[in-house]
Write a protein that binds this DNA or RNA. Structure first.
Length: 102
DNA sequence: ATTCTAGGGAGGGATA
DNA sequence: GTATCCCTCCCTAGAA
């Protein structure tokens, strides 16, 4: 449950949203750290679509957000290196530069 | 064979 | 107007 809305202040980015969720213990059943010190995290196989739905709702999208669509955005992060895929199911890694900025 | 996860093309609203 | 950013939507392929 993000605290601020995009209408006021600058727009939140997907990776910032994910980081906030990771830092919230109540969201542990949706997304959780695998190795926090390395910025490695994973989505819950069971609740990843519910987390995506929350993201889409937060952004005010018309259609329902899904993990499939959310993960497409994560793939574009690999171009800039902000987040990369680790060779493990549903797990990704923040770059250390991004991690320090969050 | 069916379901789930990963990858990429296309396009759109917002912004510089 | 033009270019770029940051996703969103959809389709295909590969893994389980």
């Amino acid at each position: 449950m993000p605290s601020s809305f995009p209408m006021t202040g600058k727009k939140i980015r997907l990776f910032q949203f994910l980081f906030e969720m990771l830092e919230d213990p109540r969201m542990a059943s949706f997304i959780s750290w695998v190795k926090p010190s390395a910025g490695i995290f994973q989505f819950s196989a069971q609740n990843k679509d519910e987390l995506a739905r929350i993201w889409g709702q937060f952004k005010g999208n018309k259609k329902v957000m899904t993990y499939q669509k959310l993960s497409r955005a994560l793939r574009t992060y690999s171009r800039t290196g902000e987040i990369t895929k680790v060779k493990r199911k549903l797990t990704y890694q923040f770059s250390l530069v991004v991690l320090r900025s969050l």
